[in-house]
Design a protein around this nucleic acid. Structure first.
Lengths: 232, 232
DNA sequence: GCCGACTCTTGCGCCAGCGCAAAGAGATCT
DNA sequence: AGATCTCTTTGCGCTGGCGCAAGAGTCGGC
């Protein structure tokens, strides 16, 4: 069994904290508050004043933006060991997206003034922030290209592989994606509809590439999904 | 007639240079090299080592990413007064996209070592960079949502209105988009095909919303386009 | 002023993907 | 255990948008 954050040592994995001493990191975490959220609970809404930023300890957080008439685009899933909304808080703006807990989540959070203080105490934080946001920009741009150039099946395959890499847990059935993931979520993540996702997954299940149940997907033949990805 | 950069005074418009004294700004520009590019000329390719970054003085630069099999997504048009690729150079990575001159372009460019030196001399540069990249991230995310939620006509209307705002020039015909913009470009910008764009524009021309010619679009009824945008 | 290269238009056929509805399969609560 | 709620599947019809091909318009070079 693989997991990403058993204890506090794993903090240093975060890209935001590189080049900061272990003591400094401990200091930073001590300045934050521990929070827990239930499945489905909303941490903040798009447009709210950005008062607090978060570090995810366990669970997954869904970050999405909404369009009029209910359409939702999932921008990313925040994994344990990652920061969220740090930049919005630093800049003192509103949150650019909505964050909600996928399952039970525990996190550490800081308010704006604390964060600003920490940034003065630990200068690498600012540089790391720039790096993080650039990486994120690159990723969104790549997904933008995929959305405009690829077909639904291709995009779904890519999404599953990505989730497998970041949240896969090996079982005897195959590699299970380790959080609640509905057809609707996958549709919102890939820019299609619940129905299309359902049809594609059903087909793949018959072909033996995956197994799936309610909000649960197991990848049994990752290689086949890669082939879908490459096949125009 | 409106133009965005008649002389060097306009430099200070750039978001990257705010909180830097006029002398400092002059200093920064003196450290760069003046370059000229012909229409269609490529400044750099996606994947190249990022050696130089640019400040556009006049003309437009098209920033795009390529998908296998020729599909192209236009991420943005860089306008006079804007910086380009500053972050890629700062981070010492490869360019994440390809940049090409839309018409004749004049620009100022800096190499990596010069830039790093300047960043030490003028600390606000780093903070401004963070702000710029965050704004860009917000914009791509917004376009990602549009691409996944809206229809072709809506996206084209939005694109035209955006270009009208940033590059519109008032004439007696209406507001002309002041650079060469082909149907294919508009298609690559909105994630559709040349044909669909052509059909939509033809329709709008018949309805009197726009006038158009070869690589040239004049908006005669912006309000009607806004209506298309809002109308689901 | 003619030629060649490029851009744009439009008709036609087609299909990927959407939307709906109705039924099935799991969860959860009492 | 039964009731209820949510999530998922699947058939059916439809249509927005794609792809191609043929032709017309436009520009620039020689």
């Amino acid at each position: 069994m693989t997991s990403y954050l058993h204890s506090t040592e794993a903090y240093s994995q975060s890209e935001l904290l590189s080049d900061i001493s272990p003591e400094g990191q401990a200091d930073i975490f001590k300045a934050g508050h521990r929070n827990s959220y239930n499945a489905g609970e909303i941490l903040f809404h798009e447009g709210d004043q950005a008062f607090r930023c978060y570090f995810v300890q366990s669970g997954r957080i869904k970050v999405s933006i909404l369009h009029e008439e209910g359409k939702e685009a999932i921008l990313r899933y925040v994994l344990p060991g990652e920061f969220m909304a740090a930049i919005a808080v630093f800049r003192g703006k509103t949150y650019p997206a909505t964050a909600s807990a996928v399952g039970p989540v525990s996190a550490i959070s800081w308010d704006r003034t604390t964060m600003i203080t920490l940034m003065h105490l630990y200068p690498p934080l600012a540089v790391n922030m720039l790096r993080v946001v650039v990486d994120r920009l690159d990723e969104v741009q790549k997904r933008y290209l995929e959305l405009s150039a690829e077909q639904v099946a291709q995009r779904i395959a890519r999404a599953l592989l990505r989730m497998m890499k970041t949240s896969g847990r090996k079982t005897d059935e195959g590699i299970v994606i380790d959080f609640r993931l509905s057809r609707q979520d996958l549709a919102d993540y890939t820019g299609t509809t619940l129905f299309s996702v359902s049809r594609v997954l059903s087909k793949w299940e018959k072909m033996g590439h995956i197994k799936s149940g309610r909000e649960r997907i197991v990848i049994t033949d990752a290689h086949a999904l890669v082939a879908v990805t490459e096949n125009s």
